[in-house]
Structure formats: C-alpha cells, structure tokens
C-alpha cells in the first residue's frame, strides 16, 4: 500500500514527529511504500540541518534524512510555513536576499499542493500533530 504522512509539529517539543517516524519505519518494514512526508505548521522545523541534539539523544532530523535516502522518500517542507519560521533552501535564500540557508539533506521546499497531491495519489494519508 502507498502511504503519505503529514507532520504538523517540530522536533523534540512534541512526540508527533517521533510517532510519524516510527510509523514510517514500521510501514516500510512491512513492505509498504512511503510516498511522501509533508511537513507543515511547526513541522517544518524537522528539516533544519543546524540541529545539534545532545549525543545521548536521537537525532530527529538526521533520522528522517537517512530514512529518506534508504527508501527514496520525498520529504517536503511547506514553503509558506517555512518562510514564516526561517527555513530556507539555497534558492529561496538567494531570492529573499538572506545570507544563509539551512535545509537538511533529503528535504526539499515546495508548495501546499504537494500535500493535496499526496492525498490524491496515496492509499492513506496519516496526520501526526498536536
């Protein structure tokens, strides 16, 4: 079955992204496909490569990047939500005249249409939030 996931909260404050990750991993282990993970609201904060958690804690951002690389998962950060919260890729940083970008490997910034499209093209869309 083809799944997509929406993550509505950022890392560490809420468990939402942890639950989403564990769900994705379990679905893949069962032979399902994760087509896309769409990060919305504060969920966009899951995609900054500047995160440095303590060494004895899970690295939520890297974990998503690695899972995406292994299983070809499309990690999409909503552009409108990202701009509000200071998440920029190289192109956006240039376009907005900012001096830095911070998107982690495997993530890309795109529009809300990607969420609706995931709903259309997936068999199930599961929302993880607060």
């Amino acid at each position: 079955m083809k799944f997509s996931i929406m993550v509505s909260e950022g890392p560490y404050t809420h468990q939402a992204t942890d639950s989403a990750y564990q769900f994705a991993k379990a679905a893949l282990a069962k032979g399902h496909e994760i087509m896309r993970v769409f990060f919305y609201h504060d969920g966009v904060n899951n995609g900054t490569r500047l995160t440095v958690p303590p060494q004895d804690d899970r690295h939520i951002v890297n974990r998503w990047s690695e899972l995406a690389a292994q299983h070809n998962i499309d990690l999409v950060i909503c552009i409108a939500a990202a701009q509000r919260r200071g998440l920029l890729d190289e192109n956006e940083a240039k376009r907005q005249g900012k001096d830095a970008n911070n998107i982690a490997p495997g993530f890309r910034i795109s529009g809300l249409g990607q969420l609706v499209e995931a709903g259309i093209q997936s068999d199930r869309l599961v929302v993880f939030g607060d």
């Binding site: 079955m1 799944f3 564990q22 769900f23 991993k25 379990a26 679905a27 282990a29 069962k30 399902h32 068999d123 199930r124 869309l125 599961v126 929302v127 993880f128 939030g129």
Partner: peptide, 17 residues
C-alpha cells in the same frame, strides 16, 4: 506495536487524527 498501527491504518478505508 507500530507494525500493528500500520495494519490498522491499512485495514480501514480511512483514518482521522
């Protein structure tokens, strides 16, 4: 477990959080 969570989602026509 998480695998059972996946089975529940797959086993129902739709899901609402």
């Amino acid at each position: 477990d998480y695998g059972g969570f996946v089975d529940l989602v797959a086993g129902h026509d739709n899901v609402q959080s």
